[in-house]
């Protein structure tokens, strides 16, 4: 396990960041911190994905005019495409979450989700 872990240290780091993000999203009371946690979680996954597509000493898979291109010298392009798709998804989700947070803040002037729940129960809605 030791040597493997050392060799794949970047993957290990991305998993640790994922765990930090996940815990933040789950346990933080503050909504903004939750959103930050969510972004960390997703970014960690994109890091992991990008690492998986990268091959040492290989170049970007771009075929220029007149240059012989060989697949044996290129990195895997699919993970990069997936990362882009994933970023679009997480940007839209973050935007939605932030919009919801603004709405809640305008109504209750707090970002603490538990506090908001308490007030809602008091309002008896």
């Amino acid at each position: 396990m030791g040597p493997n872990l050392f060799e794949n240290y970047a993957e290990a780091v991305s998993m640790i960041i994922f765990a930090i993000g996940f815990t933040n999203l789950l346990l933080q009371k503050n909504l903004i911190k939750k959103i930050i946690g969510f972004n960390m979680m997703d970014t960690a996954m994109y890091l992991f994905l990008a690492l998986k597509g990268y091959i040492n000493n290989h170049v970007a898979p771009i075929v220029a005019d007149g240059v012989e291109a060989s697949t044996s010298t290129m990195v895997n392009p699919i993970p990069s495409g997936l990362v882009l798709t994933g970023i679009v998804v997480s940007v839209s989700v973050s935007a939605l979450m932030l919009a919801l947070t603004v709405r809640l803040y305008q109504r209750y002037h707090t970002l603490d989700l538990d506090e908001i729940s308490k007030r809602l129960n008091k309002e008896g809605l």
């Binding site: 999203l25 109504r107 209750y108 908001i116 809602l120």
Partner: peptide, 21 residues
Amino acid sequence: NGRTIEAAVRYMIMSLLGSGL
């Protein structure tokens, strides 16, 4: 109303945990 926005936030949080996994 306040309830539905709070419900939507809670729904989003749990859903995001799920889709992250």
